[in-house]
């Protein structure tokens, strides 16, 4: 197809799409409304799909665009259900361990980039006149059919699992029967920590820095409408 390594136009589109993918990816965590975050993520995915099409991975690119368009619509629906901040009228800062996260993100980027720059990759680019789409179709329904079918069966199992997890009632009673530990004596309190008190931090000394980080950083959500419900032991601590 000859779209690789070629003209300056391809490079230009690639850099534009890359900038768009990274910028909208960054906007996902900076915008005030979760719906806008969803659409920003969709733009990022569509840009990556475009880059895949530039690299002659037509099937992957187009499938990414279609899949992500649908997936982000579903995600937007759930965002409305769980939105802290309808319509994004107030600044939304629902973050914790903020500095640690920034550090981890930058470290991830720098580490991966260093690894990329220091590695000698083999250089076997796509031949000019290879029909990648036909190749992929024959591979998917030929030699690698098992992988393809495994992905399909995994998706089927996911559907069953999602229905089982989100259903209120199972065949034999409430779906969360058995989720609580049994009592010390019949009908009594279960052993271990009380759910409603939230326990405190004595029981989990094994986790290292990230918990300490969460305690040090103050929860700085200034528009948290959910303070009343739910038990948030971290905030009281």
């Amino acid at each position: 197809m000859g779209r690789i390594g070629g003209t300056g136009m391809t490079d230009l589109i690639f850099y534009a799409l890359s900038a768009l993918a990274i910028w909208s990816g960054w906007r996902v965590f900076r915008v005030d409304s979760m719906i806008r975050a969803t659409f920003a993520l969709m733009v990022s995915f569509i840009s990556v799909g475009g880059i895949a099409v530039l690299m002659s991975a037509d099937y992957i690119g187009v499938a990414t665009v279609f899949m992500m368009a649908v997936e982000m619509m579903v995600m937007g629906l759930f965002m409305v259900m769980f939105m802290m901040n309808p319509a994004g009228l107030n600044p939304m800062q629902m973050v914790h361990q903020y500095k640690f996260s920034i550090g981890a993100g930058i470290m991830g980027f720098v580490g991966l980039t260093t690894a990329v720059l220091l590695t000698n990759f083999p250089d076997n680019p796509l031949p000019e006149n290879r029909d990648t789409l036909r190749d992929l179709g024959i591979e998917l329904l030929g030699g690698s059919m098992l992988i393809f079918e495994t992905a399909g069966v995994t998706l089927l199992a996911t559907m069953v699992g999602a229905v089982a997890l989100s259903s209120r009632r199972g065949r034999f009673g409430d779906s969360d029967v058995g989720a609580a530990p049994p009592g010390l004596h019949p009908g009594g309190e279960p052993a271990g920590r009380k759910v409603e008190k939230g326990g405190g931090h004595g029981g989990h000394g094994g986790h290292g820095g990230h918990q300490m980080m969460a305690e040090k950083t103050k929860p700085n959500s200034n528009d948290d409408p959910h303070e009343g419900h739910g038990n948030m032991p971290e905030m009281e601590a």
Partner: peptide, 22 residues
């Protein structure tokens, strides 16, 4: 490198956001 940048942003978001959906 672009992929690494996207991964880094995602790591930041997954570690910093409070809401499950975010």
């Amino acid at each position: 490198i672009v992929a690494a940048a996207l991964f880094g942003i995602g790591l930041f978001g997954a570690l910093s956001q409070k809401s499950f959906v975010m």
